[in-house]
């Protein structure tokens, strides 16, 4: 469609704005905060600590020889990226309404910058994963790591698609923000983060892997902890993520003209 080619070109023209807005988002987030970037680690670390206490002391879970901290953190870091990025994206337009209603620029810059700012947090959190792996003497720099860029790309597509839909809908109905907060909470437990996939009944797995995050998390674990290629469930995740990205972007572009009129 020529219109969408134009939209991409315009976004490309505004890549400097995207960069500037991402930097702004990161700077503004950690201005007047004592811990600054440490918060990027504290959030997944605290959750992992809680789950470690519960699932090693109270209800021991079999994680197939992987230390629970490593098991949980390797999933919690990408999950935290997804959940914080989507939460920020849903808010990205509404908190900047004064800008949206006064100045023109491609509106997707705001939610995409919100996601990119969280990508930085993800990078920080991921570097802590390395430290944990070193601590447990886990082999790092395995050949299987070549799959990492692919997995991250699939996850980015999924976040973008869901986040763009959320951001656009939240302009029209503020309920969307609360709905997404609730949805993310449920989604966390529908994803093999605190428990291994082995506890999911065999006959329900096909349904379970319709959750693209299940395939993505399993792929991260396979590559990082098992030094293996991702399972075929990643293909399902990739297809769903690609569909979400296309749907999200088209929906966003379709309704974007109305944003400024809805202050």
């Amino acid at each position: 469609m020529p219109m969408d080619a134009f939209a991409f070109k315009e976004l490309h023209l505004h890549r400097e704005l995207l960069a500037a807005w991402t930097v702004r988002t990161v700077r503004a987030r950690y201005k007047q905060s004592v811990l600054g970037g440490l918060w990027a680690i504290l959030q997944p670390a605290a959750t992992v600590a809680i789950f470690t206490v519960i699932f090693t002391l109270f209800i021991p879970i079999d994680t197939a020889n992987v230390p629970y901290v490593l098991f949980a953190y390797s999933a919690m870091a990408p999950w935290t990226f997804l959940s914080t990025a989507i939460t920020d994206m849903v808010d990205a337009l509404t908190v900047n309404m004064n800008l949206v209603s006064k100045i023109y620029f491609p509106r997707e810059v705001l939610p995409i910058a919100a996601m990119l700012a969280r990508l930085l947090d993800f990078a920080i959190a991921a570097s802590v994963l390395l430290i944990i792996m070193l601590f447990y003497g886990w082999p790092i720099l395995a050949a299987s790591w070549v799959y990492l860029p692919l997995i991250v790309t699939i996850q980015l597509a999924l976040i973008l698609g869901v986040g763009l839909i959320g951001a656009a809908c939240n302009v029209f109905y503020r309920d969307v923000k609360h709905l997404f907060a609730l949805g993310l909470q449920i989604w966390l437990y529908a994803t093999p983060i605190v428990y291994p996939i082995s506890v999911v009944p065999e006959h329900l797995r096909w349904l379970y892997f319709l959750n693209p995050m299940a395939g993505i998390i399993e792929a991260y674990r396979a590559v990082l902890l098992q030094q293996q290629a991702p399972a075929s469930t990643l293909v399902i995740a990739a297809m769903i993520a690609a569909f979400m990205l296309a749907a999200g972007y088209l929906f966003f572009k379709r309704v974007e003209a109305q944003f400024a009129d809805l202050v």
């Binding site: 023209l13 505004h14 704005l17 500037a20 807005w21 700077r27 503004a28 201005k31 800008l99 620029f105």
Partner: peptide, 18 residues
């Protein structure tokens, strides 16, 4: 952006204006 400095805002605002 109110929290950013004048210098940072010149770059931000310039980018917004293309």
């Amino acid at each position: 952006h109110p929290d950013l400095t004048g210098r940072e805002n010149i770059f931000l605002n310039g980018a917004i204006l293309g």
